[in-house]
Nucleic acid binder design. Structure first.
Lengths: 194, 194
DNA sequence: CAACAAAACTAACGACTGTTAGTTTTGTCA
DNA sequence: TGACAAAACTAACAGTCGTTAGTTTTGTTG
């Protein structure tokens, strides 16, 4: 029986292709045979590298969760105002969206298909992230860099707005990435500043 | 053979239950047998009322599209500033979200599973809606009720922010609907006003 | 009650799903 | 070159899917 090493390059290759197909076809509509076909291989061969389909989704979500958690810790450790921290996070979100779109999309929209036990863990991680973000907004109101707003509503609005970039990513009618990023940041920060 | 009337109450009942299940389980993961079970009936019996599974999705999306299109026409016909029109549309979006959550969710997130020919029509309708919305923003800048912003970015940001209410809808930690609506409207309009 | 249609039922079809067992090819070292 | 493991293969499993054909029940109308 194969060993299923935790970090082979082949495994990562499969994960990336799976992310791409999960995004374009949806998790439930993407069969192992389709993933295999796009890698020029038979479906059964995939099981030499991964334990199963659900692992693919779980791993993609976990990797994304880790990336965001690391950035959050870095931002929290930097001595800046709440508004500056917020801008840093927003810019990071946008960058991830541009450079790792498929994985970002999966962890945002396909996590619902996670198997129940890991789904709970994933949601807990995400709630933790949002809690940290809410804390940053509250800090911004205390240090005077932000107007008094409802912190939870603010986080929800900010994250949702960024999520919407997906539509632009799929169909950028004439707007280049730089303009898009600057215009959206400008608009969102305007909603926050006193 | 059954006649498949266009507007029987039973058909509408099936549509609503399907919308609920499509939302909670996803379109691809919701089988005809599951829908039937939730209606206390066998799967085959559904075919006395509807032509097939894909019809359910198509009909839900079409009904939502119609609702938004009607509201857009009404707003356009009212002689108000661009900012007031925008507020009216935002409030309508929120109201639909609160009163017809399942259907709203489907037409927002599950339209990707539409069969190809109707998918094109659906996307065209949506692009038309967004184009109208963009025009309203531009009008707002002309009539002085709004700050100079990138109209397409503004529409994307506004619609995405509202879409995010889904997360609150699913898990409203202590915020009542009224507060949520007012706080979000306040925040979004602040981003728009001069 | 007889007649008729609406709407339920049972049973099955072919296609597709994730996964497994067992076998063969491929590539890398001694 | 011979040995060994990694990674591909073929073939098949049990289960689910949307859908259809044909039959029976239910409910209303004359």
């Amino acid at each position: 029986m194969a060993k299923l090493q935790n970090d082979s390059p082949r495994r990562q290759q499969i994960l990336l292709k799976a992310a791409e197909l999960f995004r374009t076809h949806g998790y439930a509509n993407t069969g192992m045979r389709l993933i295999a076909e796009h890698l020029g291989v038979e479906a059964a061969s995939l099981y030499n590298h991964i334990p199963g389909k659900s692992f693919l989704l779980k791993e993609i979500c976990a990797q994304m969760g880790q990336a965001f958690e690391m950035q959050m810790q870095e931002v929290l450790a930097t001595p800046t105002t709440g508004l500056q921290k917020t801008e840093a996070l927003l810019r990071f979100h946008i960058q991830i969206m541009l450079t790792r779109f498929d994985e970002w999309y999966i962890s945002n929209w396909q996590w619902q298909h996670l198997v129940d036990d890991y789904k709970q863990e994933f949601l807990q991680i995400r709630r933790g992230y949002e809690k940290n973000f809410t804390g940053i907004i509250e800090a911004g109101m205390s240090d005077g860099s932000m107007a008094p707003i409802h912190p939870q509503v603010a986080v929800l609005t900010l994250l949702s707005a960024i999520r919407g970039l997906e539509f632009w990513q799929r169909n950028p009618h004439g707007l280049d990435a730089g303009t898009m990023e600057e215009e959206m940041i400008k608009m969102l920060l305007k909603a926050l500043t006193p």
